[in-house]
């Protein structure tokens, strides 16, 4: 094994920085991480900033045309690009705005200054650059992040679950929230969070994105059978899934 540790850099685009905070948490509980890698850029935690890195972890979504240039610069430098969290992976909550006309949104948010600010529809970073791996979630799961880093160090793609949240929910014997008159996107959402939301009695909002081949039609029926009207179903699915649903509905 080479004695030089892989150099890692963190970048943020539009997001709440909650995923980077989770990384900070992970560095405190898994101090071995610091022995295994060298962090050369991490605005959330240090002032040093070095552009010599092999692995780039990008938090946040694309929201402005100028983001594309910066994303491309990172892609050109890094050997491995990882989308960190729901914003980078899916466009995140930011993509709620995609359902509205951009001009309206800009006027609503910036008022008279609307013309001063740059804005575009919120997109996953993979719409602009090639992404080698993603760590889903809003925020990311600390343990999954640690496992993902180990996989990258081994030269493997992180092993992110491709089955739905229901599996983890049942494995930990959580009472299904549908039994308590609530609704849940667990059956179509990628697991890996340990079904944390249902374990606290609230339905999954889909922050980890869709599983491959979700049965959207059937889940819509389940939601309507459990009292959600069409508007509410749409609202529920737009919190994290706006970009993915637009694609999966086009394919359907």
């Amino acid at each position: 094994m080479s004695s030089t540790k892989p150099k890692i850099a963190f970048f943020d685009f539009a997001g709440c920085e909650g995923c980077q905070l989770t990384v900070l948490d992970a560095l405190q509980t898994h101090t071995e991480l610091l022995n295994a890698v060298e962090i050369v850029q991490f605005r959330e935690a240090m002032s040093r900033s070095d552009d010599d890195y092999q692995i780039a972890l990008i938090e946040g979504s694309y929201t402005r045309p100028s983001d594309e240039v910066r994303l491309q610069e990172i892609r050109d430098q890094a050997q491995i690009v990882v989308a960190l969290g729901a914003c980078a992976h899916l466009g995140g909550v930011n993509a709620v705005r995609n359902a509205h006309r951009l001009e309206e949104i800009k006027n609503y948010v910036y008022g008279e200054k609307a013309e001063v600010y740059e804005a575009a529809s919120a997109r996953p970073i993979s719409d602009f650059i090639q992404v080698d791996a993603f760590i889903p979630g809003c925020p990311i799961d600390r343990e999954e992040f640690v496992r993902a880093v180990k996989s990258l160090l081994q030269g493997n793609a992180p092993d992110i679950p491709d089955y739905p949240v229901c599996v983890e929910c049942k494995l930990r014997e959580t009472g299904c929230v549908f039994l308590y008159g609530k609704t849940c996107l667990g059956p179509i959402t990628r697991a890996g969070c340990g079904a944390i939301c249902p374990s606290f009695g609230v339905g999954c909002e889909g922050c980890r994105g869709l599983i491959p081949n979700p049965n959207m039609a059937s889940l819509r029926e389940v939601l309507s059978e459990n009292g959600l009207d069409e508007m509410s179903v749409k609202a529920k699915m737009s919190l994290f899934l706006t970009n993915q649903i637009a694609t999966s509905d086009m394919e359907a």
């Binding site: 739905p164 229901c166 599996v167 494995l171 667990g186 059956p187 179509i188 081949n213 889940l219």
Partner: peptide, 13 residues
């Protein structure tokens, strides 16, 4: 198959 969500719950329990 049309109805099934492929959620796996039936197997897990």
């Amino acid at each position: 198959g049309d109805r099934c969500l492929a959620c796996g719950a039936c197997n897990i329990v």
